[in-house]
Nucleic acid binder design. Structure first.
Lengths: 350, 350
DNA sequence: CTGAAAGCGCTAACAC
DNA sequence: GTGTTAGCGCTTTCAG
């Protein structure tokens, strides 16, 4: 009767079935069940069939947590991103996930929503969950907690950041070059007063990009406006910019999202892009080519960056050495926001 | 010497420190360490201080996996989304995460990238990882594997889907109404031949939306074009549409992403929106108000939906009953893509 | 107030 | 080929 009650209790609580339950139903030991689960070892075909039948009929799913405890490894890597609302990050996520799957690992994605406290919280959570490794796509987190990263006892990879120091592998972006290219294009296109709308103030990634911009601008006047990398910042700043007025202004933004916000504000103020203002973004997020006018930008291959980050993680996990710095290439993509010809093809016969 | 070697091995492998290590260093039992970790129970202040000191100096992090095994609960809920590239989903994610944090839970986010196989894979992964509950924002997954959901031994919540059946709580959207509102607005605005660009073909969410559209269209001609809910689909279909030509066409798209793709194609073909074509999207993703012309759409509060989903999950986890259906409200947001006045304010003095 | 010990579900020696 | 058994790191009675 006790057994009956136990069974009923199980049914009510719907407690997951365990390996020993499977074993006893199949009339074998847990070791054997474990073996057939592990692909094979040497189990008699007959035995295997018996076990598989029970597993099938019983919806048994091995407990990942017990397994992880025993193996001292979870086969999952944590991925922390600054802000999943920025279309830049989903691309990276896809790259990481696609690559992770190929090596039989999975990914826990943590989105900090631009909130540093939450980044730290997720950081701690992931460590407690004993992820096998950590990929971080957040400049803020890196900058503020470099010490944590240095003493980590699991492999780490930083994405979308400049080179840091030996022992911390980075998939890096040529920040200076990006700024330089933006300025170069604006200047070559004949825009003269130059404006740079920055990203999150304290991220390491911001300054060098601006520095590159300044460098190419030489002694031209450059107005630096602090932003935070969001669409809203772009909208807000764009509206303020409407008040200014001198010549054909060239604006570069820290990222496409901000640039698109700027674009919208300027357009609704009746300012023409690219006639009155030339606008250059950064990243080439999917939507950049689809807004009107489409956005000139400095492209980095986000998907590729994600793949590379995960590959680098994999190398570390299997004990291979990795480079401390793998530089992504970037590329100027000229679109309508700095070039009129593309826009307004003759009206189709409609 | 053996001890020395062991220590060195630990240092090399950087194996995480355990509770018994902490216990012995503090000269107490593991039970005591566990107690101070648990907030308190009744531990002498002095003892507590001693333990905390060791924990501090040693960077000890309790193992979530051991803890989960012992407690038979992970305190994490899994969240499966169809496509994190669609800005619709990050909003839901934020809602879920924000709410989860408030109840001390965390979230594992799994992105299926529009790939049903991957959805199933993540589904299995999450179950094996023994998440405490599962939130699914994927119509495809629900439709194809309803049987799985029915026999699940953990609580589940479905988001962004119509009501299903008793026992499966849904945060639902009034699909028919959405389609109806779109058609109504297009018709009232004087657009006549009507086109509906659909979403993923086999999702349950598609048909009713279209049905609502048809219902309001009454005996007007409606052209249904199958899509898949992506930006690319919108771009492609928009280009094909360029060839058609009759009257002031009213187009409704299954979602904003598709609508924005359509918008772009039409504009670059020289077709004027809203003059030649009126365009209505669905969702009101953040970018919808920022494209030019801005997009008229049927808004649902995605963030709220995420919050509600997680709240419903929480109710279940603490053993409270929940409603099988919680209907989100939707709202027509009229913007420039169907209304000219807003567009092109007089050029500012620039 | 604190410790001893059992056990969560699984894997991997090690026997047979 | 298969079973026995010892933990993985933690929490929680149950004693003291």
């Amino acid at each position: 009767m006790v057994v009956e009650r136990a069974k009923r209790a199980r049914a009510e609580a719907k407690t997951a079935i365990t390996i020993s339950e499977v074993a006893s139903r199949a009339g074998v030991s847990t070791a054997t069940v474990s073996r057939v689960l592990a692909g094979s070892d040497r189990v008699a075909d007959e035995t295997r069939a018996k076990v598989l039948a029970v597993i099938e009929s019983t919806d048994y799913r091995p407990s990942g947590v017990a397994r992880s405890l025993r193996l001292q490894s979870t086969s999952v890597v944590g991925l922390i991103v600054t802000d999943i609302q920025n279309p830049f990050y989903p691309e990276i996520v896809r790259g990481v996930e696609d690559t992770a799957i190929r090596s039989g690992r999975s990914t826990i994605l943590c989105n900090a929503s631009n909130d540093l406290d939450r980044e730290i919280a997720y950081f701690n959570l992931l460590l407690e969950q004993r992820v096998d490794g950590l990929i971080i796509a957040s400049s803020e987190l890196v900058r503020r907690h470099l010490d944590l990263l240095r003493t980590l006892n699991i492999p780490v990879v930083i994405a979308n950041h400049e080179y840091i120091e030996p022992g911390i592998p980075v998939i890096s972006t040529p920040e200076e070059t990006m700024g330089f290219l933006a300025a170069d294009h604006l200047i070559e296109s004949g825009y003269d007063p130059l404006i740079y709308v920055g990203g999150p103030q304290e991220g390491l990634t911001v300054a060098p990009r601006y520095e590159g911009f300044k460098k190419r601008a030489e002694d031209r006047e450059v107005l630096l406006i602090p932003g935070d990398g969001t669409l809203e910042a772009g909208l807000r700043i764009g509206n303020q910019l409407g008040a200014v007025r001198r010549g054909r202004v060239g604006i570069a933004a820290h990222n496409d999202l901000t640039a698109i916000g700027l674009l919208r504000s300027l357009l609704s103020l009746g300012i023409e892009v690219p006639e009155d203002v030339g606008l250059v973004g950064c990243d080439d997020i999917p939507i950049a080519s689809v807004v009107t006018p489409s956005l000139t930008t400095i492209r980095q291959d986000q998907y590729e960056m994600g793949c590379l980050a995960m590959e680098t993680m994999h190398q570390q996990l299997i004990g291979l050495p990795v480079k401390d710095d793998q530089l992504m290439t970037v590329e100027l993509i000229v679109r309508e926001s700095t070039r009129r010809e593309d826009l307004g093809k003759r009206p189709v016969t409609w």
